[in-house]
Structure formats: C-alpha cells, structure tokens
Amino acid sequence: MRWPPAPWGRKGRVLPILVLAACSGPQSMLDPAGGQAARIGVMGWILLAGCAFVYAVVLLWLLWALARRHRWVEPGGVLPPQAGVERRLTNGLVAWVVGTVLILFAFVAASYAVDKSLTHLANREEVVVEVEGKQWWWTVRYPDDDPSRSITTANEIHLPVGVPVRVKLKAADVIHSLWIPNLHGKMDLIPGRDNELFLTADREGIFRGQCAEFCGLQHAHMALDVIVHSRAAFDAWKEAQLAPAPAPADEALARGQALFLTSACTMCHGIRGTPASASVAPDLTHLASRRSIAAGALPYNRGNLAGWIADPQRIKPGNHMPLVGVPPSDLQALVAYLDSLK
C-alpha cells in the first residue's frame, strides 16, 4: 500500500493506516498509482486534517456548553441575557467567523494550487487513447497517423509507466463517466461534447476503472481494466494487438470459426483477419488476451465465456447482447475458437 506523503510526517500515518488498513486495492483513491491521484491524495489529507480540527473544536465547544455549571433558574423561569456575557459571546462569534474564513481561505488556496499542479501535468502527451462509452461497455482506440497502425480493443486500457497519456472521452449514447481512482478523478463522457483526461501512471500494476455516472440498467457492470506496463512491454502489447486474428490452427478451431462467421455474432462483433467487420459490439480480434469479459462482469476464462454466450441476459440482465441460441455441441467449438484469439 502506498500513501501520498501525509502533511504531518511519517508518525502521523500510523493511525489512518490502522483505520483504513483495508482500503488499498485496484480501485481505490487511497492507493494512488499516478501523479494526478497522488496530488489529489495530498489535497484530501489537507482537507481531512483541517476538517478534523474544525470538527474537534465544534464538539469541544458543544461539550463545554452542555456540561458546564449553568446559571440557576426556577422551573419554567427564563434567564435574561446579561450584557457582559453577551459581549463576550459576541467577541467569540467574531473570532469564530474570522477562524472560519482563514481556514476556508487556506482550503481554497490549497485547492487552487493542486488544481494548478494538475494543469501542469495536462496537455503533455506521448500516447493518445480514445475511449468511447456505450451502454454498457467501453471502446478503447489507439489512433495512429497511419490508419493501419490504429488499434481497437474493448474494456481494457494499456498504459506505459511514467508516460503522460491523453485520454479522449466520447459518449455514443448517454452520459458516462470514466473513473480510475488509483490514477485520477473522474471525467464525464457526454454526447455531443469532447472531454479529456490526462493520466501519468507512476508504477506498473493492474487497476480497475468503473463508470461513475448512472447510465441505465447495467451501470453496475460497466468496468474496465487498466494495465500499466513498462514501456517495452507496452510496445510489445501494441505490436501484438496490431496483428490480425490468428488463422485456425486445427480442424476443431476451423469449425469454431465457421460457426462464428455463419452465426448472428457477426451482426455486431468484428474479428480482424476474417470477414466479420461489425463494430456495434466489442472487437474480438484479441479477445483471449483480455482479463475480463462483458465490461468487467466476469474474469476471462473459457468457462465464463461459454456461460456468457449461452445466456448473456442471466449474467448481465438488460445488456444489448441477445441470446443467440448456440446448441451445446457447437458452443464448445465456438468457445475454443474464440479462446484461440490471443
């Protein structure tokens, strides 16, 4: 677990670590893995420290007010305000307001500074990723000036470590929001508008992002994996993705491919290197290289893939993949073929 440097030094970290011991993870803002999330983390600690101080002051003041020795009053009687006390309380109120203003001013200044440091991280890019949100999955493209070197995949963003990345955000249908808490805050994908998010991952690892703007029935199952590689591994991954789908290596796989190409699958899915070229649903060219299926609904493996094809509506009710009705005998061959698409 890694923390942004706590403003009050190393010793101060112990308590929050005990309290939040379980908070690290692949989808947590408390475990930053990128320049942006780290800076926001610092902001969070500043705010938390300031607010904890204010809260303590309020509670102590309340406790004192309730527990002190009070003026005596007969039952049903009324205590008239006393001029001297009112004056003292008025001075207290003035001090209170001044204190509030100072703390808020510090917060605004800190927020502005962090915002500015985020701007410094922005507008520098070595890699561009285009993410398009759809009900309920993500298209991920790596554009290239040479169109034949553009990559299209789904529900998985690969990033090189330490490299500034510009993520261009578009929405195909309704508003979505891309949130990868370990790397950065969220940004909305809005139909008719172009937004962007700048990411700089500072360690390798596998993180998880999720749609954070309610987008309909399967909003809960609209996640993606974010894989941060070394630069070399990233380039290797890219090269692998550029290749068309491998040709079926044996008879069984050939049968699976034929089943795919003659089924309703090709109405929506594309596999480069075959006649299937639709782009309504996730591109399957390198399906078997991905970590999950159905936008993070299931980990990728043959069993889950078979279950998904057999009845997508059971796993992710309301999603746009229909029940194709593959007979059990064909299902094995189809899954075997898809599983060969590394």
Binding site: M29, R39, L47, C51, V54, L104, F107, S111, G185
Partner: peptide, 22 residues
Amino acid sequence: VLGGLTGVMQASVPFDLQVHDS
C-alpha cells in the same frame, strides 16, 4: 457539522473529481 465539513471538502474541484458520484 460532520456532513457540512465533508461538503467543504467536496467544494475543492480536484478532491471532488475523486469522490463525486461515489
């Protein structure tokens, strides 16, 4: 007061980008 203070935290744009809609 606790709710008010977390509200103040969210007024900060960078922090809000993380906790918004969470």
